[in-house]
């Protein structure tokens, strides 16, 4: 089930979330997201698999602003990683390696490869 997998990969207790919305309020990427971070958590708690098709985890920049502000100490960045891993581990790449602009700094390329490839 989705919730179990996410809890296992992230190590976070999603039930602690009481939907206060502070993570979303602080997240810099919400403008590009279809589902907000706290909505993602709610969807996972309801085992709603459609959350795996959301744009949100792929836009997350792992800036940790959510986890550092959460009043229940839930690290939402880890939950986003878990969602990405679930998709990537089924041998799917989010980006096409051939299309990467190689003139960009290594840290960007390495990071993108780690986050977006299976």
């Amino acid at each position: 089930m989705l919730l179990e997998k996410v809890e296992e990969i992230s190590g976070e207790n999603l039930y602690a979330c009481y939907q206060c919305g502070r993570c979303t309020a602080g997240c810099p990427m919400t403008g590009e997201m279809d589902l907000m971070p706290n909505q993602i958590i709610l969807a996972i708690l309801r085992n709603d698999e459609s959350v795996l098709d959301a744009k949100t985890p792929w836009v997350c920049a792992q800036c940790y602003q959510c986890g550092v502000r959460c009043p229940k100490n839930v690290d939402i960045a880890k939950i986003m990683e878990a969602l990405r891993e679930i998709k990537l581990r089924s041998n799917v790449n989010y980006i096409d390696l051939k299309k990467i602009n190689k003139s960009y700094p290594q840290i960007a390329i390495v990071a993108a490869m780690r986050k977006f490839t299976g």
Partner: peptide, 20 residues
């Protein structure tokens, strides 16, 4: 001062970084 610039999204979603 501590707001994320968009980081590795520059590879995949450059538009996001531009906005940031």
């Amino acid at each position: 001062k501590n707001e994320c610039c968009g980081s590795y999204n520059i590879i995949t979603n450059k538009e996001i970084v531009v906005e940031r």
